[in-house]
Write a protein that binds this DNA or RNA. Structure first.
Length: 455
RNA sequence: GGAAAGAUGGCGGAGUGGUCGAUCGCGGCGGUCUUGAAAACCGUUGACCUGCGAGGGUCCGGGGGUUCGAAUCCCUCUCUUUCCGCCA
């Protein structure tokens, strides 16, 4: 959540930022925050004064008792009744205001950075990079403007057109290929678990393992420490990274033990640093983790969820960084370069979008999505979301560091990104690399897969 | 599942009703010594809220209670460790 300091330092900027994020009633909400806080302070001042008085009397009683002046001690005791009542009253008022304030702050999203595009939805995202694109449709149009608004050139993502193209395309969608080469059995998954839980078989399973190892190896090369965290977390962790309370319905919940299946490794890996004060010398912290991710995806249905496009359980390698405010932007860029490097090595056509204010997640200050182009579905598939949360998450987590300069305890910046999520990568790999002889495995992946083709 | 013990500052670990925000050790920081470093020695070192400041307040796992006064006593919850049982 935002800190009060941020709000007091520049209320107008915060309001403008919230409006950019399409948060309703920004002005009124910020004014309310300050009003409640003023009430809280007033209550605290009254309470502090009463407590100070109380402490003084208590101390004097101790002294009087020690000197054996029992009568005077008893006289002092008699004075405390009213004071005690006053302390209790003010204290309760203070607690109420504090709770009210926290509850309100929790409803306020993070404020986007200046370079975040204006806009309410995905339509307004800004394509900043297009890669591995030569000899593909629309190349010319795109070459002219390296960075253009998505809606100018991306009519191919329109669902109705896509449906027609699938019908016309000589390329098979991945769910057909999965069947043809016996890589994934969706029906078996339905039988043992339910829709959205595919069973990977033979070369399909081997491809999963190859990708996991490839992504982890690349992350290790880039200096990320591999973590293997639990995939089940407690409530406090859910609150720490912001999945709770608002996204409660998106997580699987084991009620008997009140534990949650993680929707991303971000949750356990970032919560490693909850309630921690880190030495500045240890920053930046660079961790990576492969985990299974579990998402209920309540309410999604239809063509979007076909095949591997949207699953309840999937494998993902996540990179998580904790850094100083001064260095977090450079950290973010390094992460973007890392993720882009993976897509280059996989030889998949991709684009990088800077998300608009309205399309960003609640907690992000700056977010880039990576999408790969699926040549049978004629759609862009999101495979990574790489965000800087500024101090927003750290404030909730109480993740702080001790500055070398003045030894002050300061909130860290947290960042994370997928590097990468497997299912849609697999979808694109299968669809884009299909040949008459089988599915070509990109050179970088061959050592991990152990072959150059799926046959 | 049964039994017992425990939860204290960055870490370890004292403290069983009144200058205890907390002895001490480690670590950190400053200094002496040294060409420099190490060692040794001396000093210093919690977080948060509030106030222009002086200062005031809160915090010894969470919550509640007793008391003029609680790290210390009582209740309760959570978690951890050990032993037994079960078991990959």
């Amino acid at each position: 959540m935002l800190t009060l300091k941020q709000i007091y330092d520049s209320p107008e900027q915060i309001v403008a930022g919230l409006e950019k994020k399409h948060f309703a009633d920004a002005q009124a909400t910020i004014e309310r925050v300050m009003a409640i806080d003023a009430e809280r302070k007033a209550a605290q001042q009254k309470k502090d004064a009463a407590s100070a008085e109380m402490n003084k009397i208590s101390k004097s009683i101790g002294a009087l008792m020690a000197q054996g002046k029992k009568d005077e001690a008893n006289a002092a005791k008699a004075q405390t009744g009213e004071l005690k009542q006053a302390v209790a009253t003010y204290e309760q008022e203070m607690d109420t205001k504090e709770q009210e304030l926290t509850n309100l702050l929790l409803t306020i999203p993070n404020v986007p950075y200046a370079i975040v595009p204006e806009g309410a939805s995905a339509e307004d995202n800004l394509a900043v990079v297009l890669g591995n694109w030569p000899n593909r449709p629309m190349a010319d149009a795109i070459a002219k403007n390296g960075a253009v608004a998505l809606r100018d050139w991306d009519s191919a993502t329109d669902e109705t057109i896509a449906a027609e193209r699938i019908a016309q395309s000589e390329k098979l969608p991945h769910w057909e290929l999965a069947k043809k080469y016996n890589l994934i059995d969706f029906d078996l998954g339905v039988k043992i678990s339910g829709a959205g839980f595919p069973v990977y078989i033979g070369q399909g399973a081997r491809l999963q393992r190859a990708l996991i190892n490839f992504f982890l190896a690349e992350a290790n090369k880039a200096g990320y420490t591999e973590i293997m965290p639990p995939t089940v977390v407690n409530q406090a962790s859910g609150y720490g990274t912001g999945q709770l309370p608002d996204k409660e319905g998106q997580m699987y919940h084991c009620e008997v033990d009140d534990l949650y299946l993680i929707p991303t490794a971000e949750v356990p890996v970032t919560n490693l640093y909850r309630d921690v004060i880190i030495d500045e010398d240890k920053l930046p912290i660079k961790n990576c983790a492969y985990t299974e991710c579990f998402r209920r995806e309540a309410g999604s249905y239809g063509k979007d969820v076909r095949g591997l496009n949207r699953l309840h359980e999937f494998s993902k390698i996540e990179i998580v960084r904790i850094d100083t405010p001064e260095h977090s932007d450079a950290s973010h860029k390094e992460m973007l370069a890392h993720v882009e490097g993976l897509l280059k090595k996989l030889e998949l056509p991709y684009r990088i979008l800077r998300l608009s204010g309205g399309d960003m997640s609640f907690t992000a200050a700056l977010c880039y999505d990576f999408e790969v182009y699926s040549e049978a579905q004629h759609r862009w598939l999101e495979v990574s979301s790489t965000s800087n949360f500024d101090t927003y998450q750290a404030n909730r987590l109480k993740c702080r560091y001790r500055r070398n300069e003045d030894k002050k305890v300061t909130l860290c910046h947290t960042l994370n990104g997928s590097a990468l999520a497997l299912p849609r990568i697999v979808a694109a790999l299968l669809e884009n690399n299909q040949t008459e002889d089988g599915i070509r495995i990109p050179a970088a992946l061959q050592p991990y897969f152990g072959d150059d083709m799926i046959r």
